[in-house]
Simulated assay, not measured.
Amino acid sequence: MTPPDTDMQKDKRRHRGPLVGVILLIAVVLLGFVVWMGGVFETAPGPDDPESAQQDETSSEQFREGDVEVPESAPTETVEPGDPDTDVSD
């Protein structure tokens, strides 16, 4: 049901504040999203990053041959030949 005494000019004035508030809120959220995504892309490793270049230098042949240097901090486990807990597939 609609109210019998509608005043369009009065209703426009009443809705102006909440509409401006919602528009400002959306603008702030979009600005925050753009800033956040800019930070994500800024800190992402690129092709000139020395760490990513070091990872790219290792070829699949080196992995097969066993010529890859493993850092001392890497977890290692010694496995004896014939260990039933070890599954080796070719």
Rank of each mutant, 00 (worst) to 15 (best):
M1E: 13
M1G: 15
M1Y: 14
P3S: 10
P3M: 10
P3R: 13
Q9H: 13
K10P: 05
K10C: 08
K12S: 15
K12Q: 15
R16C: 11
R16L: 14
V20S: 08
G21D: 09
G21I: 00
G21F: 05
L24E: 15
L25G: 10
I26C: 04
A27M: 06
A27E: 04
V28F: 03
V28S: 04
V29Q: 04
L31S: 06
L31G: 08
V35L: 12
M37K: 15
M37I: 13
M37F: 14
G38F: 06
G38D: 08
F41M: 11
E42S: 12
E42V: 10
T43S: 07
T43V: 08
A44V: 05
A44N: 05
A44D: 06
G46Q: 06
P47N: 11
D48M: 09
P50S: 03
P50W: 01
P50R: 01
E51K: 11
E51G: 07
S52G: 03
Q54Y: 02
Q54L: 09
Q55A: 13
Q55T: 10
T58E: 03
S59F: 01
S59R: 03
S60Y: 11
R64A: 11
R64V: 08
G66M: 00
D67M: 04
D67A: 08
V68A: 00
V68Y: 00
E69V: 09
V70C: 02
E72M: 08
S73E: 11
P75W: 03
T76R: 12
E77I: 06
E77W: 03
T78W: 05
T78F: 04
T78K: 09
V79W: 05
V79H: 04
V79D: 02
V79S: 05
E80C: 00
G82H: 01
D83F: 02
P84D: 04
P84L: 00
D85T: 11
D85L: 07
D85K: 08
D87F: 09
D87C: 05
D87T: 13
V88N: 04
V88D: 01
S89D: 09
